[in-house]
Design a protein around this nucleic acid. Structure first.
Lengths: 304, 304
DNA sequence: CGCCCTTACGTCCAGCGTAAATATA
DNA sequence: TATATTTACGCTGGACGTAAGGGCG
């Protein structure tokens, strides 16, 4: 017998309806029907009477309804029990640079910390090619990154091998970040020939597989290989270079919000489309704290 | 989270030892170790400190130990909860004639009824070839019968198809039941030629695949095909015929206990060896009452 | 080395979703 | 037919057993 079944039963009695309770519990109605039936089977007696109008508890059903509420009240007080109890523990998040601001800019992310003061949340910025290894080394932890559509299958299967679940958050498109000081920033769109006047900055790791292939389109008389987003942004703001960044994910960058730089696309030309994903332990035994953070991020970044 | 995990945790704290608790809980020590670890993971905090001397609860562990006991006390009062609460419901047992007395003769079988007065137990005597169909028609129910070793695989796989679990109870050997009035009963063993003087009685169903093949060894000038054990026993007691019966399973027959008839073997000759089995629903959601009866029978009839 | 607990891995069952069936007004 | 519940079935994950691994006296 699972504690969850008690919660299911309580919700069914409260709603006087299987279908309504199923909605509230975020499971399908047949699944709930079976769960309640199994619950009755282990208890050994009928707990609710079914009809096409809904359900009503039997005499004993009411008794067990009360007991169940009492039990739920006890364990909801436990740390990390699915109530809002005393959720605690350490949660590690590894995210690629472009998405970090989007996470941090979101007020509800900080509400997590207010809601669960004992929950320690650590956000580490890592380069895309390091993401998976960080997640695995620091299991259990959460990862946020992107993949090119062609990398999708290999990422999903690799993650699965390590007991990780991968979920798509949103699709994004790379664009050029350019300083508003640059006269070209006045245009609606850049042309391919404009690019030749612009030096491209990119990450110093040799696996920057987004920017590297496009180097040839830019002014290749300069070479800026830097190892932090801050360095790169600094360069862009001072109009010494441009960079390729995912558009949606970067929308909360300070330089963009304050109009120091702007994202621009190129006429008749598309930079890579990518899909942002979240990676987290597939096991249901993951700490509730971790799952709260996962749910929060998914809520904030889905359909971004 | 399962209610069982609370019981596991409570037992571990009580024993101050994983291995001892595992013994009391009838699971292996590694299984318990994992269960407790999962419990801690969902709660989010360490509940016990491990050492090579055993385990001790942490501060929070003690708190949750108390809460768990409280929760267990609540649901142990429910009908069929694994406490000795108010176990109720109907339990149907189908057993072949030869084993019925062994079940009924056992005092502990009747203690079941004393312990759980609301549990209705129905015992039906059925012929071996009808056993499976009765079990299926009356699902969930319990069956007790025997098979020839050659029938073993087919029975097990067929039962599995119907969601039934089959367990060996004990091995038995068929022997001749003969009236003590008969002078041959004075001998130590019968000879094959003695059999020719003895008419064989057997069940009137055409599927009596134990007795039928041996008909030729007996006095075949008589043919007694009867449809109840009482009729057959009556015949044997009055020395009008003999019959083939499994020896161990029949030991509680009144006629045998009171020395009216005795089982005899034949020199240099063996009647079929059979294996008695119990059949019951494989699902863990079976009513606790049914499982109590299954456990009782297994306890009484294993290594008979 | 022995005791106690953990990790690894394979097997089997339970939980849930999808789709289809059933019941009642 | 419309609404509510049940049944059927496939997939995935969890529970437990067996066997092997590690820490501490």
């Amino acid at each position: 017998m699972r504690l969850q079944q008690l919660e299911y039963f309580v919700e069914v009695v409260r709603c006087k309806s299987m279908s309504q309770a199923a909605k509230n519990l975020f499971i399908t109605q047949p699944a709930l029907s079976v769960a309640i039936k199994d619950f009755e089977k282990t208890i050994g007696v009928q707990l609710i009477k079914r009809s096409n109008k809904g359900v009503v508890p039997t005499t004993l059903g009411k008794q067990i309804f009360n007991d169940s509420q009492e039990i739920i009240n006890i364990y909801k007080g436990w740390p990390n029990a699915s109530g809002s109890g005393d959720i605690c523990g350490d949660v590690y998040i590894f995210a690629i640079p472009s998405i970090c601001n989007s996470i941090l800019f979101n007020e509800s992310f900080f509400n997590l910390k207010k809601m669960y003061p004992k929950l320690n949340i650590f956000l580490d910025q890592v380069r895309p090619h390091e993401l998976l290894s960080h997640i695995i080394k620091n299991y259990p932890s959460i990862g946020i990154g992107y993949y090119l559509p062609s990398e999708r299958e290999s990422l999903f299967s690799q993650a699965k091998m390590y007991g990780l679940k991968t979920e798509l958050l949103f699709k994004d498109e790379f664009n050029i970040l350019i300083s508003n000081k640059n006269p070209l920033a006045q245009k609606d769109k850049l042309s391919l020939s404009d690019l030749k006047k612009l030096p491209l900055s990119y990450y110093s790791d040799t696996n920057d597989n987004i920017s590297l292939p496009y180097q040839m389109y830019f002014d290749d008389s300069f070479r800026f290989r830097l190892n932090s987003k801050e360095n790169i942004m600094e360069l862009i703001v001072h109009n010494k270079a441009v960079a390729l960044y995912p558009e949606k994910a970067s929308r909360y960058e300070y330089c963009i919000r304050s109009n120091l730089v702007r994202p621009m696309s190129v006429e008749n030309f598309r930079f890579p489309q990518v899909e942002f994903f979240i990676l987290y332990p597939a096991k249901k035994t993951s700490s509730i704290g971790l799952m709260k953070v996962v749910d929060n991020i998914k809520e904030n970044l889905s359909d971004f």
